[in-house]
Structures are given as C-alpha cells and as structure tokens.
Lab assay of single mutants.
Amino acid sequence: MGFKLLSKLLVYLTASIMAIASPLAFSVDSSGEYPTVSEIPVGEVRLYQIADGVWSHIATQSFDGAVYPSNGLIVRDGDELLLIDTAWGAKNTAALLAEIEKQIGLPVTRAVSTHFHDDRVGGVDVLRAAGVATYASPSTRRLAEVEGNEIPTHSLEGLSSSGDAVRFGPVELFYPGAAHSTDNLIVYVPSASVLYGGCAIYELSRTSAGNVADADLAEWPTSIERIQQHYPEAQFVIPGHGLPGGLDLLKHTTNVVKAHTNRSVVE
C-alpha cells in the first residue's frame, strides 16, 4: 500500500471513529477524501466538511520552486461564519470567499490569524475590503508590521502568557507558548472536538522541520505538551499544512522538532 493511500485511509478511519463516538456532533463529509496538494491548482481553494458547521479550507501556493498546501478553518456561528487564517495570499483568499459563498452561503463576518507569517495573514486586506472584521493577538499584529505583512485590524486580548485561553464565538483560542513562531495560536472547536494546530503542528508525513527561522526550538516541545494537557479530548487535529489526523500529530511534531534540534547540535 502506497504512503499517500495509507495517509488518506488514516484520515478516513479517524473521521469514521469520530462519527461513531459522537453521532450528534459529527456529520463528516462523505463526498470524498481530504484534498491534497496535487489536486488543488494554485489560485483555487477546496472546502472539506469535518463536522456539522465545521470545515477546513485548503489552498496551495508556490514557494521556492515548489507547491505547498495550506489549511485553515471555518466555523459556523449562528447565521454567520468565523474564518481562521487566510488562504495564503490575496488571490487565494478572494477564491476562498467565493467558494464559501458557493458552498455554504453564509457571510464571513470575523477572521482570526493564528500567527504573523504570510500563509496566515496574506489576504487580510481582501477580507477587510469584503467587510470582514480581522483579528490577531497584539504580538501577531506587531510582528506582521515588522515583517511588512498585512496586519489584522483588531487585537485579541488575554493571550499574552503561555497557557492563556479565551473564548471567541464558537471557538476557544489558546496560546501554548512559542513553537513554530513566538505568537502562534491554537484554535479548538469544543462542539466538535476539532483542534486546529496551525503551523505549530505537523502532518504525519512530514519528517523535516522546514521553516524554523522564527521558531523557538527549545520551547516548542513544552508548548505541545500544554496543548495535549489542555485538549486531551480532541479527536480531529488539523495541521497548518497537509493531512489531518488525531492527537498523534502532536507527538510526531515533537519528535521531528527534537530530531532537528539534535542534528543542529551535532553539526
């Protein structure tokens, strides 16, 4: 069995187990497998329904001669939608809004960016022009300005110390501490036991640490421990890039980060 097929099978099995364990909360999309990078042309966006009122959005972007996937989250909030992270750029984010209108038909009224990198804030200006209120932590807003990236308009308070959590509509926002970046936030959907790890969490097929220019490698494993301790009931975990899975993604990420750190020390 090929690795790609095995990865998709694991996603399907995880979703099936969740649907059985929580039949009222989960209505997993039966329309197909989780979209992969090879299936999404740059400039297009796919939506994948995880649970009743919960979707991931998947886009792709060219970077350094390669094409990478990027995940975000959409959560229903009454007759409105909360968006977590842009679709990595203005063109993708405009396509995301169009796809949401086509498939869901509810307005996106608020959006949260989970850290300051372009795959999370690139497209904020498109959201703002569409009347979406954009939010991020003060740290993310400051770092985005320093980096020359787009800056969300509103500040999220109460997320300055490791372990801080605040309720934001249908989700809980959690600051686990520094990891992929010093400002990275985690998003949890309690009604569906869905954990969105953003770039602080890796997919299972990833074996290298990737972009760690703004990471705190020493603190990252401790931050992941905080996530595990705060959300032990999480059933569906979405990484910032690639295929979702279960809580095993947290341990896998820790292993990859520690291996990278150990290699760096040896070198």
Rank of each mutant, 00 (worst) to 15 (best):
P221R: 12
S27G: 09
Y202A: 08
L243F: 13
P239A: 05
S160R: 14
V132R: 01
E267V: 10
D118Q: 12
T261P: 15
P107M: 13
L81K: 00
H57L: 02
F174S: 04
D118K: 07
R142S: 14
Y12R: 13
P232V: 06
E44A: 13
Q235G: 06
Q49N: 08
T109E: 13
F26A: 08
L247T: 06
S264Q: 07
G53Q: 09
S160H: 10
H260D: 07
G240F: 02
T114A: 02
G177Y: 00
E203A: 08
L5G: 06
S113I: 15
D77I: 04
L217I: 13
G123Q: 03
S137C: 05
S70E: 03
L10W: 13
G53Y: 06
L97P: 03
V42K: 08
V237P: 00
S31P: 10
D77N: 05
G72M: 01
I74R: 02
T14P: 12
L106D: 14
S27T: 10
S162Q: 15
G246T: 08
E44W: 11
A200S: 06
F26Q: 10
S208A: 10
V189N: 00
N262F: 05
Y188I: 05
G43R: 14
S193Y: 12
Y34E: 12
N149D: 14
S264P: 15
Q235R: 06
S205R: 09
G158Y: 06
D29Y: 12
L96N: 00
A21W: 12
S139E: 08
V256N: 04
V266H: 11
I40S: 13
L127Q: 02
A144Q: 03
V265Q: 14
V166T: 08
V37F: 08
S7D: 08
T140G: 03
Q103M: 07
Q229L: 12
D85K: 00
H115N: 02
A66I: 14
L243I: 14
R142T: 14
L6T: 09
A209Y: 12
A59F: 02
Q235N: 05
T182P: 09
R120K: 05
A192G: 07
V42Y: 11
K91W: 15
Y231N: 04
L127H: 02
D79Y: 15
A215N: 05
V146I: 13
Y188S: 05
E225Y: 04
L106R: 10
G148V: 09
L97R: 01
E145R: 12
A165H: 05
V171F: 02
K4C: 06
P221S: 10
D183C: 00
V108R: 02
E99R: 14
D119C: 01
G163L: 08
D79F: 07
Q228R: 11
S264D: 14
T140P: 02
D29C: 08
A259C: 10
S137E: 04
R46A: 13
Y231L: 04
V67Q: 09
A95W: 06
H154Y: 05
D214G: 10
R110S: 07
L243W: 07
V265D: 08
I227S: 04
G78S: 09
G242V: 03
P232L: 07
S38K: 14
R46S: 10
E219A: 10
Y135Q: 01
I84W: 00
T207K: 11
F26E: 11
A144Y: 04
I50R: 02
L9H: 06
A15I: 15
G89C: 01
V237C: 05
A21H: 15
H115L: 01
T253L: 00
N71W: 02
E157Q: 13
N255L: 13
M1C: 03
A136F: 03
R226A: 11
A51G: 11
E157H: 13
T254V: 13
A130K: 15
N71H: 02
T207G: 11
S31H: 09
S162H: 07
Q235I: 07
T153P: 09
N71E: 01
T261L: 15
L47R: 02
A218S: 09
F174D: 00
A218N: 12
G65L: 13
L82C: 14
E172R: 04
V194M: 06
I17E: 05
L9D: 06
G89W: 02
V212P: 13
T14C: 12
G246H: 08
A59L: 04
G53N: 07
L127D: 02
L24I: 12
H260G: 09
A95N: 13
F3C: 04
Y188R: 00
R120F: 01
N211Y: 07
L156C: 02
H180I: 00
G148T: 13
W88F: 14
S70H: 05
I40L: 15
V256P: 00
E233I: 13
H57Y: 04
L10I: 06
P239L: 02
I84C: 02
Q228M: 13
I40R: 11
E80R: 12
D164R: 10
T60M: 10
V256D: 03
K8R: 09
P176A: 06
V257H: 04
F63I: 12
D79M: 08
S139T: 14
F168I: 15
D216R: 13
V121K: 01
L159M: 12
I50H: 15
E267S: 14
I74G: 02
V212D: 10
P23F: 13
R141P: 03
V189D: 03
M18Y: 09
G148L: 11
N255T: 08
I50Q: 08
E99W: 11
R167P: 06
G240S: 02
P23V: 13
E267A: 07
V194F: 00
A94V: 11
P107R: 15
P239C: 01
M1G: 04
L247P: 06
A213D: 14
W220D: 01
I58N: 07
R142Y: 15
G105W: 07
G242E: 03
A192N: 08
S181G: 01
E233K: 12
V265Y: 15
Y12F: 09
A51C: 07
G158Q: 14
M18W: 08
A19N: 14
S223Y: 02
S264G: 12
A234G: 08
I84L: 13
L81D: 00
T109A: 12
V42T: 10
D85I: 00
G122C: 10
F26W: 07
D119P: 00
D248C: 05
H252T: 05
G210W: 03
V75F: 02
V171L: 09
I74Q: 01
E80H: 07
A129V: 09
R263Y: 05
E147N: 08
A94H: 09
V187G: 05
R76E: 11
T182E: 12
P244H: 07
I227P: 01
Y12G: 12
E39L: 08
L173R: 01
K102S: 15
S137W: 08
V28D: 07
A130H: 14
I151Y: 04
R263Q: 15
L24T: 09
F174H: 03
E219Q: 11
P176F: 00
G242Y: 02
S181I: 00
D216C: 05
Y231K: 00
E145F: 07
F116S: 11
T254F: 14
I74A: 13
I40E: 14
V189Q: 03
A209L: 14
S139W: 09
A95I: 08
W55A: 01
S162L: 08
R120D: 14
G198C: 04
A209W: 10
D125W: 07
Y175H: 05
H260S: 10
D52V: 11
E225F: 15
V121F: 02
G169E: 04
A136P: 03
G2T: 09
H154E: 12
V171W: 02
G158L: 09
V54R: 02
L83A: 13
V194L: 09
F168P: 03
